[in-house]
Nucleic acid binder design. Structure first.
Lengths: 214, 214
DNA sequence: TAGATTGTTAATCGATTAACAATC
DNA sequence: TAGATTGTTAATCGATTAACAATC
């Protein structure tokens, strides 16, 4: 498998490919062309071929891609053929939603520990996991080999939680709080901030209407 | 205010600027330079200046930007100086989380109606809003002038819900379900799919470790 | 063989960054 | 005046798309 420097844009599209490919398997579709994928994803077929070709030759000329084989390959590229363990901090509604979703759907990323600062929540159960106090964070992360932290606390707490996760030694953080967090270079941080999506939607709703009215 | 065609990348950064600027006001910081903003956001100062300059001259040479004035201007650009009404479909944990967050924090985008297909949920209250049956969707959207739909149902239902929203006449959809939805060109759809972020995180965690070990 | 579709190179397009005159 | 910082043009960089030989 080739390993040049892969652009972020490519890496972010791979999970989306995976999503569509999984749908295809469920519908017992076994072969797909870049054109077909492009239609489903609103992407240029050449882009899809190029994205995949960074990692190897996965298709067959004249035929297309074998869906199951491609799923396997993309999962390998994303390192999803091993399980990643994650800790979730913040047992609110969003935390609940993620735990539920996670336990039913994903086996490649598993939330195995939940923490909260609120004494009333400690000891309660979410999806089979007992909510633990923040004091237990560091020890649990180390002993369970957890490498991902998921932050679902209010914005005001988020940086503190990130700091604790970093010193406990996680390699990646997925932050849902509406705040830009500072972490050392060697820790990867992704922001899943729906406010951004919601507010940019407001821009387009008005402005596209204007364009049409012209 | 100039109105060329603005790139998506720029529009997506504006809400992030807003976030940081709001933080600054709360800390009673009244002036900020592009350099300072760039440090906070991990962005090139030139890019920030260029982004803002698309819409007008908001800064003062030698001084920087007035925080409150810039907030006001960005809010105008994003059309946040009027309230946008939104309907949320899917009263699960994620729906709860969004309603709560929304009612406390945002007044520019207001969720004013909640729907669910599950009869057990209908009539229950989320944050002061009574959960309504799907049959009421179209009428409510029209009578309340709702233009945004927020989808928090399972992936299998998401396309159907999107179709109903479109025929009820919304202009924009924010989709949280892990599925690519098809909507007509004149409807704007944004995907807030954290699975993408989580899985691409798995890629970087392993691959950056490899890079460091080399 | 004819039709389809990949992998890949070259061309295009767009976005980011550097540089600097203008000016507070 | 000297220092700082904007707005903007030009240069660079990177990502997308078109085109096509290879081949199933």
């Amino acid at each position: 498998m080739k390993q040049l420097k892969i652009s972020e844009a490519v890496v972010r599209r791979l999970p989306v490919y995976l999503q569509v490919l999984n749908e295809l398997t469920m519908r017992e579709v076994h072969t797909v062309s870049s054109q077909e994928l492009g239609r489903k994803l609103n992407l240029n077929p050449a882009q899809i071929r190029k994205d995949l070709a960074y990692f190897g030759e996965f298709g067959r000329k004249g035929i297309g891609y074998d869906v199951d084989y491609l799923i396997e390959k993309i999962r390998q590229i994303l390192n999803l053929d091993k399980t990643h363990y994650a800790a979730l901090i913040g047992a609110g509604n969003l935390g609940h939603a993620l735990c539920n979703y996670n336990s039913y759907i994903r086996d490649d990323v598993q939330i195995t520990a939940v923490f909260d600062a609120n004494p009333n929540k400690i000891g309660t159960t979410i999806n089979g996991l007992t909510v633990q106090p923040m004091e237990a964070l560091s020890e649990q992360i180390r002993s369970q080999g957890i490498r991902i932290g998921i932050i679902t606390v209010p914005a005001s707490e988020a940086q503190n939680v990130a700091n604790e996760l970093v010193s406990a030694g996680v390699d990646g953080i997925l932050n849902f709080a509406p705040a830009i967090l500072k972490v050392p270079d060697e820790v990867r941080i992704h922001h899943a901030n729906f406010t951004t999506e919601l507010l940019s939607l407001a821009y387009y709703i008005e402005n596209e209407r204007l364009e049409r009215d012209e």
